[in-house]
Write a protein that binds this DNA or RNA. Structure first.
Lengths: 149, 149
DNA sequence: TTTCATGTAACAAAAATAGTTACAAAATAG
DNA sequence: CTATTTTGTAACTATTTTTGTTACATGAAA
């Protein structure tokens, strides 16, 4: 699983969880399904646990479940929890003291902050419940068939 | 020079060029100044040349100059030329055929495109000339003093 | 008490990035 | 015309980041 498809990959898993809130999903299930390793999953998912999005239970029948209702979890929450960098600009000073650099970076930071804010706002307007709803009727049947729940 | 400060670093150089359109700037000058290597600079700057933002001349007194007026070069042009990824999301299918995944990715792509468009629009509204102007009066003096032109 | 699951640390492998060396090509100075 | 300067690139090395693996402790349920 590549880093920049992490959001999409885990969203996928989360939506499945939203469809079956009762049924804990193991790291191994998620992993095999994202073509990766259980430990990698646990590592990544730790962010979602710390953010109060997922909760885990151990032992028999354990695994991951949503920690709160799907309509209170937004894309903004998730991206933040996954530490996905939203805007890949940074403005570290290469020639400290250069007036030109300072002016450039100031403007750049301004634009960055402005857009970042907008982006977050937009991401905050979509909830997991929205996504789950959008999947339509065929999904439960699909789940039975392909993921063997 | 780290990848995510590339934009800021080269913008810095470009603004200097905008201030002295007559004076070609060598890869070596740019490099020493960004704490990196002339070859790395040339490699990166190749994108700016291909995009018609910079032009190069070889031999004695050669180097890099703006290929067109500073007020026709926008931040959008520059970020694109530097192949800076604007939105670090990707939605590659991990489980092809999964309806949930398809729905999730579709929504995600939608949000991504929407924001990307907005971001580009915003970046396109700032020109190199704007940045250069913003640096104020002290700059020419500063150039003489620190960069020895 | 055995089995199954998470939680982490430590290590290994792979991939992406950055930096270096070497040399050809073009342009100018003398 | 020759020496010097500077870009243009390829090939290689080094570094950093990311991903994957192994190993083992902890907790919960059968």
């Amino acid at each position: 699983m590549k880093r920049n498809s992490r959001l999409s990959a885990f969203l996928h898993a989360l939506v499945h969880m939203a469809h079956r809130p009762d049924h804990p999903m193991t790291s191994e299930a998620i992993a095999s399904w994202l073509n990766t390793n259980p430990v990698v999953v646990r590592r990544t998912v730790a962010g979602l646990r710390n953010a109060g999005i997922l909760s885990s239970s151990r032992g028999h029948g354990g695994g991951w479940t949503l920690a709160r209702p799907a309509d209170t979890i937004t894309l903004a929450d998730i991206t933040e929890a996954l530490e996905q960098k939203l805007m890949p600009f940074s403005t570290e000073a290469e020639s400290p003291g250069c007036l030109v650099e300072r002016a450039v970076n100031q403007t750049l930071e301004g634009v960055k902050d402005e857009i970042e804010h907008l982006l977050k706002q937009r991401l905050a307007s979509v909830t997991l419940a929205d996504l789950a709803a959008q999947c339509g009727e065929g999904v439960s049947a699909h789940l039975e068939k392909h993921h063997g729940h």
